[in-house]
């Protein structure tokens, strides 16, 4: 069951209006407007280099030169009060290779929930996070000695600490085998359903789109669609989200060409 009831429906977890990001000479995001509803999994899809990571960094508050409106959990993005409420996983695993899995989690837990009084709660959160990502057998292995997929799961476990309200996951399933990918998507659905968390997950693998409640389709810094997978397929008359995406890309390219010629 989705956990909508406790919050006013009109207040989304993330709301962007005219969101623009400039990196160096390039405008990476151009006037995006969208909202991410509470307690659901929203997929952020598009080819690599289209601005997915930049958009996620803007939501988390680590991206510089963001203009427009971007509200996250009722605060402007980057607000200090959000730092304990957002779990963020970067594309490359950001963990300490020279610490064990448990030592990594112990440290990040101590930053989120410091003090000796919280030690028991921290230990509980660390154990749960290790179980969540199925690394119990590797808890005392150095992160640097793990495989690529295992390291990215350590990185994910860090984001799960402290039960965040919003999880921002940048390509969390890249390089994982099919069984693990299925297990992780099951975990994401559990987190949304049972812990009432909102998930924003990016991917460039279109078959993962079918597992999301809502989709944001991006291309070259612009938003092509903001809809449910079903509505997208219906609207474009396609069988898969991938076909729907290609249809929208062709449409946008054609529209772009008309604009060029009329100019």
């Amino acid at each position: 069951m989705m956990n909508y009831s406790s919050r006013p429906a009109e207040e989304p977890a993330v709301r962007a209006r005219d969101l623009t990001v400039v990196r160096g000479p390039r405008t990476v995001l151009r006037g995006l407007g969208f909202s991410v509803p509470h307690g659901q999994i929203t997929g952020l899809l598009g080819p690599s280099g289209c601005g997915k990571s930049t958009l996620m960094r803007a939501v988390v508050g680590t991206q510089a030169k963001v203009t427009g409106t971007l509200d996250v959990l009722g605060h402007p993005a980057g607000h200090p009060g959000l730092r304990t409420r957002i779990g963020y996983v970067t594309q490359a695993p950001s963990v300490y290779d020279d610490l064990t899995v448990r030592q990594n989690l112990d440290y990040f837990a101590a930053i989120l929930d410091p003090g000796r009084a919280a030690a028991a709660r921290r230990a509980e959160h660390v154990t749960r996070a290790i179980t969540d990502v199925d690394l119990t057998g590797h808890a005392d292995t150095l992160a640097g000695n793990l495989s690529g997929g295992q390291r990215s799961r350590v990185s994910l476990a860090v984001a799960l600490l402290g039960t965040p309200d919003l999880l921002v996951l940048d390509e969390p399933t890249v390089g994982l085998d099919p069984v693990l990918r299925r297990d992780l998507w099951q975990l994401f659905h559990t987190i949304a359903a049972e812990r009432g968390a909102t998930l924003l997950i990016s991917s460039h693998v279109m078959d993962e789109a079918e597992r999301c409640h809502r989709l944001l389709l991006m291309r070259a810094g612009e938003l092509l669609a903001d809809d449910t997978p079903d509505a997208l397929r219906d609207r474009t008359g396609s069988d898969t989200v991938e076909a729907a995406f290609l249809h929208l890309v062709d449409e946008a390219t054609a529209a772009g060409r008309t604009k060029e010629t009329t100019r």
Binding site: P80, T84, L99, Y107, A110, I111, L112, D113, G162, T163
Partner: peptide
Amino acid sequence: STTTPAPTRALSASRTTATAAR
């Protein structure tokens, strides 16, 4: 269990020692 929001201060003794220990 719920986590009480821990504010960010310029300097927190337990976060500093946790970092040093790490």
